[in-house]
């Protein structure tokens, strides 16, 4: 591989990470939308499309391995490849959480929800903001944007606590609701974990650009 081809491949890696991140964010959005509209078919579609995101992950991982083996990258190049390697794992897990939400939607079927959806859509909206900032940070190689995205994880955690609190109240009042309430709790848990993966990605973006590897938002 020539130096120019190597440079092109490094750019492609970042472009493909952005594409994978967009798809993972989209999967989360569609899973929560399926819950909101009680659309089991849409949930099944999210589950089916997870394979494509898994395939992107495998492809990126293999390309990183090939570059490590053949190019002996150093400094910024090494940090980019090592970061892409780590980022794809987090994005793949993010998509797995979309799949998890979709499975909860399927289990709920057409049964009535135990409470109106208020905080879960808010969590999802917050996650979409985080995804946007995260992907802008990758595109612009901007650690400030990455830190900004990671800082929003607190809001997601806060909303998840509210969901937990509300659902506990409902379950205590009427144990009949427990199976359905648990499904919403599972959804909130998946969203909270998805936001954690975004935070991980942001940490890697900071490392890629600055060489500084630190946990964000601890």
């Amino acid at each position: 591989m020539t130096r120019e081809a190597f440079e092109r491949e490094l750019h492609r890696l970042k472009d493909d990470v952005v594409q994978m991140g967009e798809r993972a964010g989209e999967a989360i959005h569609r899973a929560v939308e399926a819950l909101r509209t009680r659309d089991v078919a849409a949930a099944e579609q999210v589950i089916a499309e997870d394979d494509a995101i898994d395939a992107l992950h495998m492809d990126l991982e293999q390309r990183c391995m090939r570059l490590l083996a053949t190019q002996q990258p150093m400094a910024g190049d090494l940090r980019t490849i090592a970061s892409v390697f780590a980022i794809t794992i987090d994005l793949e897990r993010m998509a797995d959480h979309a799949e998890g939400i979709s499975r909860a939607v399927k289990r709920l079927g057409t049964e009535p929800l135990v409470k109106p959806l208020v905080d879960i859509p808010k969590m999802e909206a917050q996650i979409q903001e985080m995804v946007r900032d995260m992907l802008d940070a990758v595109r612009a190689q901007d650690p400030r944007l990455a830190r900004q995205a990671a800082a929003k994880d607190d809001v997601v955690d806060e909303l998840r606590n509210r969901v937990l609190h509300d659902l506990l109240g409902i379950m205590i009042k009427d144990p009949q609701t427990i199976p359905r309430a648990l499904e919403l709790l599972i959804v909130a848990r998946h969203l909270e974990r998805a936001a954690d993966h975004i935070t991980n990605v942001c940490e890697r973006v900071v490392y890629m650009v600055t060489g500084e590897l630190r946990e964000l938002n601890v």
Binding site: R3, M74, A75, D77, R79, T210, G211
Partner: peptide, 17 residues
């Protein structure tokens, strides 16, 4: 030096530029 060089010239050299 090999993971986060401080000088641009070091970075350019060790990354083969």
């Amino acid at each position: 030096l090999f993971t986060k060089p401080r000088d641009r010239r070091t970075e350019d050299y060790i990354t083969g530029r």
